[in-house]
Design a protein around this nucleic acid. Sequence first.
DNA 1: AAGTTCGACAACCGCAGTCCA
DNA 2: GTGGACTGCGGTTGTCGAACT
Length: 333
Amino acid sequence: MGRSPCCDESGLKKGPWTPEEDQILVKYIQKQGHGSWRALPKLAGLNRCGKSCRLRWTNYLRPDIKRGKFSPEEEETILNLHSILGNKWSAIASHLPGRTDNEIKNFWNTHLKKKLIQMGFDPMTHRPRTDIFSSLPHLIALANLKEFMDNHSWEEQAVRLQAEMSKLQYLQCLLQPSSGSVPTSQTSAFDMDTINLLNSLSSIKENNNNNSPNRLNLSPQLDIGAASLQSLNNSITFSHMPNLQVPCSFQTTLNSKDTIQAPDQFPSVSINSPNSPWQQLAPSSTPTQSPLSMALPPPLTDASIKYNTLGDACSTSVWPDLLLEDPLFHEIA
DNA sequence: AAGTTCGACAACCGCAGTCCA
DNA sequence: GTGGACTGCGGTTGTCGAACT
């Protein structure tokens, strides 16, 4: 298979096309047809390689090209087709009259991919992200907490947990300044899980203010997630615990339905449409439940738990490092 | 006002497939 | 069957304007 040598030729112009070049190319093709792309530049009087001419024509100058923003219907079509075809841009383009593969590819990379990621979907599989690393710290902390609870007296646990809560409060003070703004896509799922962990521990304390009892009633089996935390919440009493709260900008109080609506910044994606890939992803979900909610971990306890907004699990921030370097984190984890 | 950063999109690069002499 | 010419395609890079500092 020989490679096209045309672009290697020296002396040919590269880079953006001028209106004059566009005019020459359009006039020539309208008059003669493109014929051999390799021969075209010479015949048309253009100092470009044939490949460049072909690309310019097919992606920009072709008269049937539809320019302008993608409609919600087109977005949905792209999402549907991409969930089936993957990055087969030309195949996707063939279903969208007037749109080129390049245009669709760019639109995907700059808009749709980000939307899916922000909404907690893997842009390649179109499925809710199941990044094990994002929940790992949470799970490890819970497992170790349970182990500690099992192996120590109530007095020891109370003293130690109080000390840990004080450390957490200190950590929170350190974290506060970096949380003055609304969470962005740069806020990692790791951060969110850290916040969840802080909230979980906080809720332990809150619950203890409401419940009675100097007794431990841990479930014999470690049921990671809501059940174990609920168990902790219901069974541990603390006094003089520091007030631990995540920055309010990260808090979103859920109602009893625990359904989160699609964020306002994604108005054009109709995720509930019958043809939407997200709809297909959730065949068992109730019609009123947004598939977006599938991307969220289950709420830890009830509506009193503040849950965080979605974050990009792939991105990084200084938060994880800060926490990982702290001895407290190693003690908990 | 100047410099920097960021996002959108046009254009390029290079591999792979097809055609044809 | 072979190999060069050509085209199609997807990934990547470059450019430019807007937003931000």
